[in-house]
Design a protein around this nucleic acid. Sequence first.
DNA 1: ATGAAAGCGCTAACAG
DNA 2: CTGTTAGCGCTTTCAT
Lengths: 333, 333
Amino acid sequence: MAKSIDEIAKLAGVSVTSVRLVINGQDKKYRISEKTRARIQSIIDEHGYYINQTARSLKLQKTQTLGLVVPRLTNPFFSQLTEALEIRCRECGYQLITVCSRDEAELEKQVVENLIYRSVDGLFVTSSYRERQSELMENNHGKPVVFLDRDFGTPDIAVVSTNNLDGAKLLGRKMARQLEGRNLTFMGADDWLPTIQDRLEGLKAGLKEEGYSLLDKNVLYAGRISRSHGYQKMAELYKSLGRAPEALVTSALPVLEGCLEYLKKEHGGIPHDMLIGSFDDHAMLGFLPNKVFSVRQNATELALEAYRILEAKILKEELEQQKRVIMPDLITY
Amino acid sequence: MAKSIDEIAKLAGVSVTSVRLVINGQDKKYRISEKTRARIQSIIDEHGYYINQTARSLKLQKTQTLGLVVPRLTNPFFSQLTEALEIRCRECGYQLITVCSRDEAELEKQVVENLIYRSVDGLFVTSSYRERQSELMENNHGKPVVFLDRDFGTPDIAVVSTNNLDGAKLLGRKMARQLEGRNLTFMGADDWLPTIQDRLEGLKAGLKEEGYSLLDKNVLYAGRISRSHGYQKMAELYKSLGRAPEALVTSALPVLEGCLEYLKKEHGGIPHDMLIGSFDDHAMLGFLPNKVFSVRQNATELALEAYRILEAKILKEELEQQKRVIMPDLITY
DNA sequence: ATGAAAGCGCTAACAG
DNA sequence: CTGTTAGCGCTTTCAT
């Protein structure tokens, strides 16, 4: 029903140039006569005009779209990040296309390629592996890329991530003060991620500052970040301890969920006096009867920073800083 | 770095037609000589080829993209739905573009229009208001639309939704059996949504079947679906009862969160013997010490069904049924 | 003050 | 067996 520029021009009996000028509000500047302007305007009002973005994209060699690759949308942190980024992009005239990689290397490669085929003007990528990250930088078809959340240490690339080290240090200090002689167990997962390594290292440092040493035997790895892996690992831990841990810190929420599920299912409940620490915050953590500490990443600030950097790259502006680290908050329930 | 069809053709010293034929694997059918095929292939192998989707879209008048409008991505149900839909679309060669409307009428209108400008081939929309829904059907620029989750009763449109009525009935029956004389309070929100109305109606019916009548005075509305509204309303309820309700059913998770937050903050905790019922499931509900019942929507099945219908519309296939209702599961923690 | 025309990269119809 | 060409709707440059 709405018409293209050509059709409007034909209906008004003028050239496409004239139509374009009034559509873009440049009729004054280019001295279109009031008469023609009015005729064109009335045709537009009557039939409606809407621009064909595809044709515009082809001509201008840019699509005004950006791509975003996240591991999962069902992870609350990434859904927050995605929401914030989508809003920002829209405000700035870009359409965001979000795809999930499920942290699978092959899928990540495929979806990134897909986005590039779609001629996005730039990419936000949460990469699962160092190799994927450098591979993408080598073969990015000239597309600007900003990496999110995970800094594998590759030099000369743009990364916006959370300060996991200092966040974890805060958590460590806070929890140490509440331990009162109790033993703390750390349960990680996906331990090749720098995120996880920083979290453990920071936690150790924070605990240390308050005089508590986290022993290696109290550092466990559940394999992948998932509920089932957490469940499994907690089962083993319970067997070896003969009881639930006195204090538990997990590197990611799904792992914690698995742990709690095991305790609830197999032992009738979660000991109320078990101290819990979590990276990844969730509203419902506050409703456990337990004392809970959680490190909350600042998804909105991450999104804003990432957008700022990608936009600068697209506009080929000079960047003072390609890497940005955002401080998380410590929440106490 | 990768080249276009024209460039490949020039490099190989052949026509674009020949290049296209080997790219599309139709070299046999159109009897391209083995010699040319080999030459073209080697050029492609050397320089790489990738299709310009924008140009293809312009020519074919279809973009192989679909749009999805959801209220929020941070709502677990919608993030699941989005994930499932994204996967399905990708499998079938479509790129999904997801945008949030925040259940705001103006924003919803704007993002839908945006997607149409982008020439999506079809749309999935979770509409916030009956008027928006019919308005979109009147002015859809010829784009096929499938509505999700909310059936406002508009005739002759495609809707895939959850059977909230029967799901709620299940919940009502189950909870009635555990009430043992206790009083149940229902707290809704966004009560113009058919979803919410069905949930209340079903709940009443289910309770009734087991001999319990939900009184009007025990039906409350928190205004909008949000944590703060739930908090506020629970504060009022507590004041009027002089204590927490003995059994509570909320129509949406954020409302429940607000209620629990109030109890925890203002009264030192959530009474362990308060029966809880929730529409919208969440993993962490299982970790409350309380008895919890929750109705879990089948996001994956909804996504699959919605895709099936939209695809049929795009291909202009005959549809036996434009409306599909999916049964949810009842979870007991 | 307004118009004409080239060209973005692809597809498909047609022409040898 | 292979090549030529029109045209999708837009932007931009150059002519009037």
